[in-house]
C-alpha cells in the first residue's frame, strides 16, 4: 500500500514538474497525453477517449484519467481492477470500511458545502456545477481546490476503493456541447484527484450530459441542480 502511495506521489510530482501545471486545459484532455519522458513506465501515452484502454501491456493508461463511454465500461473496469489484484476490501469488512470512510469524510469535510450521501455500498459526493466550475467551462473553481485536496488525502488512505466521477449538465443548449462539457468536467475533477496522489487506475470519469437530471429542467433552480458533478466512492470488494 505504501509502495503504491509513493509511486503515485512520484508520478504526480513528475507530471506537475514536467507540465508546469497540474490543471490541463479542458479541451486538451484525453487528446493530449502527458509528457512520456517523465513516466516511470514510459510505454504509455495512449488514447483515453471513449473507453479505449490504450495499447499498454497491462491495459491501463498511465497518468491519464480513464473516461468511460458507458456504465458497462465502468463495470468492466472495476472487474479488471479486481482481477488484476488491486488493493481490495475483505467481504466481511465492507460495512466497516464504508462506515469509517463515511465518518472520516464527514470529519474532514465538516463545514464545507458538499452534499454527502451514504448508500449501503457507495458514498456519493455531489458538487453543484455553479460552485465547482467556471461557467460553461471545465476549469475547476479555486474554492474547490481545498476540497479536492482533502478528498485526495482521504482516498489515498482508503485506497481499496473505486472513484467514479460523473459529470451532468442541464438540458439547455446543444446536446453535443453538453455531453462534451460533462465529460470534461468529470475528467477535470479526476485529474485533480490524481494530482493529489490518487492512483489513476482507481479513477473513472464519465459524462452523462443532460441524460440524468435530478431536478426539473424547466426551472432555473432545477437546471442549477442538474448541473453538477457526482463523485461516487465504492469499496473494491469481490462481489
Amino acid at each position: 500500500m505504501s509502495e503504491n502511495l509513493h509511486r503515485n506521489i512520484l508520478a504526480t510530482m513528475a507530471v506537475v514538474l514536467l507540465t508546469g501545471c497540474g490543471l490541463m486545459p479542458a479541451r486538451e484532455t484525453g487528446t493530449t497525453a502527458s509528457e512520456p519522458a517523465a513516466e516511470p513506465l514510459p510505454e504509455r501515452a495512449a488514447e483515453a477517449h471513449n473507453g479505449s484502454t490504450g495499447d499498454n501491456s497491462d491495459g491501463y493508461s498511465r497518468n491519464v484519467v480513464y473516461l468511460a463511454s458507458d456504465d458497462q465500461a465502468i463495470v468492466e473496469r472495476r472487474q479488471k481492477l479486481l482481477d488484476d489484484g488491486h488493493e481490495s476490501v475483505a467481504l466481511d469488512r465492507v460495512g466497516f470500511y464504508m462506515d469509517v470512510l463515511t465518518a472520516r469524510l464527514r470529519q474532514e469535510l465538516a463545514g464545507r458545502d458538499v452534499d454527502l450521501d451514504r448508500a449501503d455500498r457507495a458514498i456519493t459526493l455531489t458538487f453543484p456545477g455553479s460552485q465547482a466550475f467556471e461557467t460553461n467551462s471545465a476549469e475547476i473553481h479555486p474554492d474547490m481546490a481545498p476540497i479536492l485536496g482533502i478528498l485526495g488525502r482521504v482516498l489515498d488512505e482508503y485506497d481499496a476503493s473505486l472513484i467514479t466521477i460523473a459529470g451532468h449538465t442541464d438540458s439547455t443548449g446543444a446536446r453535443e456541447f453538453n455531453q462534451h462539457l460533462s465529460e470534461q468536467r468529470a475528467l477535470s475533477v479526476g485529474r485533480h484527484l490524481h494530482d493529489q496522489g490518487v492512483a489513476e487506475t482507481r479513477i473513472i470519469a464519465i459524462g452523462y450530459g443532460p441524460d440524468r437530471p435530478i431536478a426539473d429542467n424547466d426551472t432555473l433552480q432545477g437546471q442549477a441542480l442538474n448541473r453538477r458533478v457526482e463523485l461516487r466512492i465504492e469499496p473494491l470488494a469481490a462481489t
Binding site: V94, F96, V100, T102, A103, R104, R106
Partner: peptide, 18 residues
C-alpha cells in the same frame, strides 16, 4: 478477532465520530 471491525456502525455523527 473481528470485534473491532463490526459490519455496521450504530451511529455515524456529523462530527465524524463513529
Amino acid at each position: 478477532g473481528d470485534a473491532l471491525t463490526p459490519p455496521q456502525a450504530s451511529r455515524i455523527y456529523d462530527s465524524g465520530v463513529v
